[in-house]
């Protein structure tokens, strides 16, 4: 059975569901907040913004995104997707369809990844719109006088995406494993809080082993040196949790 057929099946399930709307709304939060923050602090930020407005503005947004909103989006979306099956009592139909178990598992994970990518693209587009809006409110920011360092931006977004891959694998497993809607969210939120503690309160050397702290490390320039290692570690964790989760999914005694 072709993996693409399983992926098609998974995508059809979220057609017209609130998943897409939630993704766009979540992607709009940081751009909206950025307008509010820069609007209220316009005088203080004027100097730093107007020197290199787009790159400064996008950099600040990326930090906010990586610290809070992207991990929270992943926690939400990884929980919501399996809930489509739990809520509709459709697991048994999925598991009695002629798809290899690995295809069922992987195609669902691919949908989570697709939604994260859609989230990041929507966030980027809306950040552009928010910059235009901010420039209309405060022409002194001089957005139109400067360009975007696309290479820096795209590599930053790529790093952000890879840094959250491990979180997505952990939350994906939790979302499928636990029928209750609240528990995976609570687990994700707690693990995220611990990341904040490790990152801000503990000496260096802890956070770079803890998946939920990876997006923090990847978004602060002072940790640039450890970013490549963090990204590789994130990919390794992703593979590990994807396999552990699959083994749990495949050999669960009661399915559906």
């Amino acid at each position: 059975m072709n993996l693409l057929i399983s992926l098609r099946s998974e995508l059809l399930k979220i057609k017209g569901s609130s998943t897409w709307i939630l993704t766009i709304i979540a992607a709009a939060i940081v751009p909206t907040l950025m307008i509010m923050i820069f609007d209220s602090d316009s005088r203080e930020d004027l100097k730093s913004v107007s020197a290199d407005p787009w790159n400064y503005y996008f950099g600040q947004a990326r930090a906010l995104l990586s610290m809070v909103f992207l991990p929270m989006f992943i926690v939400m979306i990884s929980t919501m997707l399996p809930q489509i099956e739990y809520r509709n009592n459709t697991w048994k139909q999925v598991l009695t369809s002629p798809q290899p178990m690995w295809n069922i598992w992987l195609s669902r994970f691919m949908v989570v990844q697709l939604l994260i990518i859609v989230f990041l693209i929507a966030h980027s587009l809306l950040m552009g719109v928010s910059g235009v809006v901010l420039n209309t409110i405060h022409p002194a920011f001089k957005f139109y006088d400067h360009g975007v360092d696309w290479q820096k931006y795209l590599s930053g977004m790529f790093n952000t995406y890879i840094s959250v891959a491990a979180i997505s694998a952990i939350q994906f497993w939790a979302g499928i494993r636990i029928k209750n809607f609240i528990l995976p969210i609570a687990i994700g939120f707690t693990l995220w809080l611990i990341a904040g503690f490790l990152f801000f309160e503990m000496p260096p050397g802890y956070a770079d082993k803890y998946p939920f702290a990876f997006p923090l490390l990847s978004s602060f320039p002072k940790y640039a040196a450890v970013v490549p290692e963090v990204l590789w570690t994130s990919l390794a964790y992703t593979g590990l949790f994807l396999v552990i989760g699959y083994v749990d999914f495949r050999f669960r005694k009661v399915k559906g």
Binding site: S9, K13, G16, N89, K92, T96, P98
Partner: peptide, 29 residues
């Protein structure tokens, strides 16, 4: 499983989709 059609207990359907869309989910599978 490719040669079996099944209905186990209560209906297993996606409430937000219409009848055709529910069938389309599994058609290619």
């Amino acid at each position: 499983l490719k040669r079996i059609g099944s209905l186990i207990e209560i209906p297993s359907l996606y409430g937000h989709l219409n009848a055709k869309e529910n069938l389309e989910v599994y058609r290619a599978v």
